[in-house]
């Protein structure tokens, strides 16, 4: 399974969500994306954005100062329109 890393550190919400959204636009369903963020809001906002746009949250965790969201690009939920 392909895994892509996204560095969204030092960005404040909703920028990490926007970065995730824009990065997902090029990824095939089933791809894993690991987003590293420093805004704790990302742990709420990225999963919420994924739920409404048809992607799956695999895991959310904290490591030191990083808030990490692991998600899988959904089938058909991938929006290439923007």
């Amino acid at each position: 399974m392909k895994t892509v890393i996204l560095d969204a550190r030092r960005l404040l919400c909703p920028m990490p969500v926007i970065r995730v959204q824009d990065r997902l636009a090029d990824l095939e369903p089933g791809t894993r994306l690991v987003a590293y963020c420093t805004d704790p809001g990302a742990l709420i906002d990225i999963p919420a954005w994924c739920r409404i746009n048809g992607h799956h949250i695999v895991e959310t965790r904290t490591e030191g100062d990083d808030y990490i969201v692991v998600l899988e690009v959904g089938r058909g939920g991938n929006d290439r329109s923007i």
């Binding site: 969500v17 809001g41 919420a48 409404i52 048809g54 929006d79």
Partner: peptide, 21 residues
């Protein structure tokens, strides 16, 4: 953490949300 109300509204309505920078 405070919720993002735009995402919350979209979720209540069951609609996709495109956030544009």
């Amino acid at each position: 953490p405070k919720r993002n109300n735009a995402l919350w509204v979209a979720e209540q309505l069951g609609i996709k949300l495109h956030i544009l920078d």
